[in-house]
Design a protein around this nucleic acid. Sequence first.
DNA 1: CTGAAAGCGCTTACAG
DNA 2: CTGAAAGCGCTTACAG
Lengths: 335, 335
Amino acid sequence: MKSKITLKELAKLLNVSVSTVSKALHDSPEISPKTAERVKELAKLHNYRPNPVAVNLKRSKTGTIGVVIPNISNSFFARVLSGIEAQAQEKNQQVITYISNESIERERQICDMLTSGLVDGVLIAVSEETQKKQEYDHLFSLVDYDIPLVLYDRINIDIPADKVGVDDEKSFFDATNYFISRGVKNIGLASAIHHVGIGKLRIKGYEKALAGENEQHLACSTVPEELRKKIKSLLTKDKVQALLCTDFESTILATRIAYEENIQVPSQLKLIGYIGREVAEFLTPSLSYIEQHPVEVGSKAMEILNNRLEGNYKPGQFKESIIATSLVHLESTKF
Amino acid sequence: MKSKITLKELAKLLNVSVSTVSKALHDSPEISPKTAERVKELAKLHNYRPNPVAVNLKRSKTGTIGVVIPNISNSFFARVLSGIEAQAQEKNQQVITYISNESIERERQICDMLTSGLVDGVLIAVSEETQKKQEYDHLFSLVDYDIPLVLYDRINIDIPADKVGVDDEKSFFDATNYFISRGVKNIGLASAIHHVGIGKLRIKGYEKALAGENEQHLACSTVPEELRKKIKSLLTKDKVQALLCTDFESTILATRIAYEENIQVPSQLKLIGYIGREVAEFLTPSLSYIEQHPVEVGSKAMEILNNRLEGNYKPGQFKESIIATSLVHLESTKF
DNA sequence: CTGAAAGCGCTTACAG
DNA sequence: CTGAAAGCGCTTACAG
């Protein structure tokens, strides 16, 4: 039950003023070595730690940053968070986590809270709904309140803020070219996120790589049963020899359909998915995937936010940083 | 650029005192309806919101709670967090997230921070290392500082705190009995977490169900290659007809080895794993699993913490709440 | 070298 | 009904 000791109590015990104690603990040159030592000794004895709330009030800052996550079950975002947290830890900042569950309504509530002065800055990946509706008023309200804002991952939004993204387009451009260079003829693409920004970019990369020379084979739908039908058609009718999947759902669906249709991966069908390592390497056969380096996305976002907070960037000019993906080959792309 | 307006500024604009403004905004009966209205109107116009840091200092609380997570890539913990966050949101509390990465050293640092008064209470699942070493001094220091503490998931620790767990033992007892009742003879168990609390409990459930009547078939190792060998031996030499897996790693390894050894699931081998739905239902064949209801673990932990904070529990007496698991049958246990 | 004072932004007993 | 004062726990210019 060592209830926290305050400066005032320390001062009384030492028979000096609160100011003296405070200065001594901050190694102020104003204080004599002797009293400085006395103060520090007693402070250590009582394990004194300044009340962070009081310090923050005095400094007019909070020492915390807010992170908005659309969906924490998505391991990409979970790992982004871990990158953010690691970075914050080094800088002794606290991370307040908010989960929007892909809902714009919830996102609005969160942004509303955030403008009340709970945090020094905000990292956000906007919800799918927000992207669909393209309503960004709540984000602009953060900007209006001068709360530094960094968008991560879902950055295809016209708003004056720093951004950290993933090179979605290039990842699929490269992956498609990988197959082209190996002489694969029918290359298909499956997507359950064709309607959102990152989905569009990945599809664009695929289309650019094909560049009219090869026929496109697309299976896109947000409805699982629809998507299943379309992928099945790609595999059995179009007989694609390679399939790129833009997201977890389509990836898993594709491996599933191949299994059901008795199509051997990788001998008859090469597969590349957009999923995390934890799952990719444990599928049967193990699945080649595009690694997005989520931890780096998180730490980069945090780094940019801190630079912004420390005034290292010019106001009105914004950073946009893109983290390179890598194509990790496991069994499903063996030739 | 609407920089935040303060009570003082509001007061000046209205030509009243700060106290009057504060009271008016809190619907104090001391204030005349007329001024109350004037104040509220201007407050709304300027979108006034009390500075939470100041309010917290005044109230001597922080309005935030700290959550310590061993490993956020584990979807169980990610979903626990989402349960916590949802509950916190309703109560208008902030959730500060810390990730220990299963390291006791990091956990100590976190607990040290937490004793400085950053949060009103703490929810923690201790790291594996902490469990192994059984060093809980840092947890006791939270207790010493009178910071309410709720352990979740990993609760097999002798410490005066509230706890929310999962009925690990019963889950495996029931699962094993499920097979026994169907006349399955050789029932095996695979584990990569046999050395930690929850692993031990699951194994215990299995052993109790077998109760000497049936032979045990255990494959346990923390070394992937070791575990692989042992599971393979279970499947090919012991020829188990059913296999229970205590964790993600052993579950995936088992499906993998069955595939490689050309053992058909579920006709030749029934499988039950301890993994999340997202992955379970997308494996091939889909994998029956034990659902732990992580979101409920999180919201229950939060509920207990809030009750504790509100003084609804007797000091010195602690709650222990167990969330029931359910066995979800997918393809891998079809008879 | 030390301490009194002001102030961060708020709330609330108390006086008028 | 309104406002001055004290105080939450701290920091820091300023006076002595």
